[in-house]
Design a protein around this nucleic acid. Structure first.
Lengths: 101, 101
DNA sequence: TGTTCATATGAGGTATTTATCATTTGACCA
DNA sequence: TGGTCAAATGATAAATACCTCATATGAACA
């Protein structure tokens, strides 16, 4: 993986699947890799790769539970960052993109 | 340019040159394209392309002044976002990457 | 130890981004 | 209008990132 520079944290957030994973973990709480994959209709391997990057940036944390590894969002920091972007969009980009979900 | 989705805002921030431009504008105040290019030792064209993306996301604003176009950072939102990432890094990634600038 | 299930890893092709060059547009003023 | 300077645009090659497949690791338990 690439070196952990300032812009890299944004790069990791700049991907639909990784954002979806974070949003899912935020809404649903801690989940295993397979549960995430099923819920997002994504490949186990793809999800694992994504989680690896999110973990490297500490956007998620992980705990072993039997054979499963349970991933959870780092609420303290990820949620505020998402909120800021949402505010920014509402304030500045309302007409450009008022509608993703 | 790509469609303006949530993750896209992060994608635009996930690039060294664009981050440098924002940091420069933040420290130095409003600047013309050429001044930015000179200061960062980058091509005029490259800077212009970068500014276009930053502008589309409303991370910067622009004003015409004679032949020049003066770009300024959107302080209200960009600075807080950068601050949040910095806090996040200090709090969670201190040992991984304590040192970019 | 051997089997099973969950997750991680590595390699590959494909897609997306980036940087650069040449050219165009646009503002200003003689 | 023609010249000049600043900035924007478009096309393209090069660099990165992404997704998928096949395979490896690792935990649990008989």
């Amino acid at each position: 993986m690439r070196y952990l520079s300032f812009d890299h944290f944004f790069t990791v957030l700049g991907n639909k699947q990784r954002v979806k994973i974070l949003q899912l973990l935020d809404r649903h709480g801690p989940m295993s890799v397979m549960s995430i994959a099923k819920r997002l209709q994504a490949e186990q391997s793809a999800v694992s790769h994504s989680l690896r990057q999110l973990l490297a940036c500490h956007f998620v944390v992980v705990n072993q539970s039997g054979k499963e590894r349970i991933y959870a969002i780092n609420e303290d920091t990820v949620r505020p960052i998402f909120d800021l972007i949402e505010q920014h969009v509402k304030k500045n980009c309302a007409k450009d993109c008022g509608h993703w979900q």
